[in-house]
Amino acid sequence: MNKFKFEKLIIWQKAMDFGETIDQLSLNFPDREKFNLSSQICRASDSIALNISEGSIGQSNPEQKKFIGYSIRSLAEVVTCLFKAKRRHYITEEQFTNLYNESYHIMNMMIAFRKNIK
Rank of each mutant, 00 (worst) to 15 (best):
E20P: 01
T21V: 11
T92D: 05
P62M: 06
G69E: 05
R73K: 15
I41P: 02
G58E: 12
K34I: 11
R114M: 11
F67R: 05
K118A: 09
F18I: 05
L50P: 02
A44Q: 04
V78L: 08
S26Q: 04
Q59F: 00
E102L: 11
Q95R: 12
S71E: 01
K86Y: 11
E7N: 02
A112T: 12
M107G: 00
E54V: 09
E63K: 12
I41W: 00
I117P: 07
S38P: 00
Q40G: 04
G69P: 04
E7C: 08
L27H: 11
E77K: 05
R87K: 15
S53M: 13
K118M: 05
Q64A: 11
Q13I: 08
I48F: 01
L82E: 06
K5F: 10
F4T: 09
T21K: 12
I57C: 10
I91L: 07
D46H: 13
E93G: 03
D23I: 10
S39G: 13
F18A: 02
S47A: 14
E7H: 02
K14E: 15
K84L: 14
D31S: 14
E102Y: 10
E77G: 06
M110Q: 06
T92L: 08
S56Q: 13
K66A: 04
A76V: 07
L37M: 08
D23Q: 12
E33K: 06
Y104C: 10
V79C: 05
S38W: 00
A112H: 10
Y104P: 00
D46V: 15
S39W: 00
H89G: 00
K66S: 07
Q13H: 10
K34T: 11
H105Y: 15
K65G: 04
R114G: 04
K86T: 00
A112S: 15
Q40Y: 02
N51G: 02
F4G: 00
A112M: 09
S56R: 07
I106D: 01
L9N: 05
V78N: 01
T80S: 14
N28M: 11
M16T: 07
R43V: 06
Q95E: 15
Y90E: 06
V78K: 03
Y70C: 08
Y100R: 08
S71R: 03
I22T: 01
F4C: 00
I11A: 08
F4L: 15
N61G: 00
F18Q: 01
S26H: 06
E33T: 08
S45D: 03
L25G: 03
T21M: 10
L37F: 03
K65Y: 04
N2W: 11
W12K: 06
E20H: 14
S39P: 00
Y70L: 13
N101T: 13
S60C: 01
I22W: 03
G55A: 05
E94S: 12
N36C: 12
Q13M: 07
K118L: 09
S60F: 04
T21L: 12
N98F: 13
G69C: 06
Q24E: 14
Y104D: 13
E102N: 10
S60Y: 06
A15Y: 01
D17I: 09
K84I: 14
F67I: 06
Y70D: 07
S74M: 06
V79Y: 02
I106Y: 00
S26M: 08
S74H: 04
N108L: 13
R43W: 03
Q95L: 12
I11F: 01
I106N: 01
E93H: 10
K34H: 07
V78I: 11
Q64S: 13
